[in-house]
Amino acid sequence: MLTDVMIEDRRWRALGLEALADRAAVATLVHLDIDPGQFEISVLACNDARIAVLNEDFRGKPQPTNVLSWPSHERGPERAGAVPDLPRVGPDAELGDIAIAYDICAAEAALGDKPLADHTTHLIVHAVLHLLGYDHVRDEDAALMESCEVAILCKLGIANPY
């Protein structure tokens, strides 16, 4: 499997997060012509309290967020709107780590009238793109990242979340 999922909040198990995260991550890499068999991604499936601590520790924001990502290497392009550099291929090369919080994801899904599995899939795709150097700070980068997300989700049978 591409993803190594550590479940701290048991509610993720009922959603089938292990299979869902792997499916989303594989679809993202395949869409970008990256061999998923060459890489690993660690996923922490936690609750809001845990992700709030991580968010404060790493981003200085003491509140929960839906998903966080820590790329193993900086891959972001210098030029706005440019495609990030592809990761180097190697056996079991780590792309990075992701943390996802159940409560805030469930609340966002309910607020958006979306199935939790679809919203979670979107967030995993989003986080994997961050691991690959995609970002949404600059407008041009945001447009590129969103178009990738929409295309990947469409291949997975999930409607455009935007």
Rank of each mutant, 00 (worst) to 15 (best):
T3W: 03
V5M: 06
E8M: 03
R13N: 09
L15W: 09
L20T: 00
D22L: 02
A24Y: 08
A25C: 08
V26Q: 13
V26R: 15
V26T: 12
V26I: 14
L29K: 00
H31C: 02
L32V: 01
P36F: 11
P36W: 11
P36Q: 10
S42I: 03
S42Q: 06
L44S: 02
N47V: 12
N47H: 12
E56G: 15
D57T: 15
K61P: 01
L68Y: 10
S69A: 14
P71F: 13
P71D: 08
E74L: 05
G76K: 13
G81K: 04
G90Y: 02
P91H: 08
P91Q: 08
D92W: 08
G96V: 02
I98M: 10
I98W: 10
A101D: 04
A107S: 14
E108L: 09
A109F: 06
L111T: 01
K114H: 08
L116I: 12
A117Y: 03
V137G: 09
R138Q: 10
D139M: 05
D141T: 10
M145G: 01
S147L: 05
I152K: 09
K155L: 09
G157A: 11
G157R: 06
I158V: 15
N160D: 15
P161K: 12
P161Y: 15
Y162I: 07
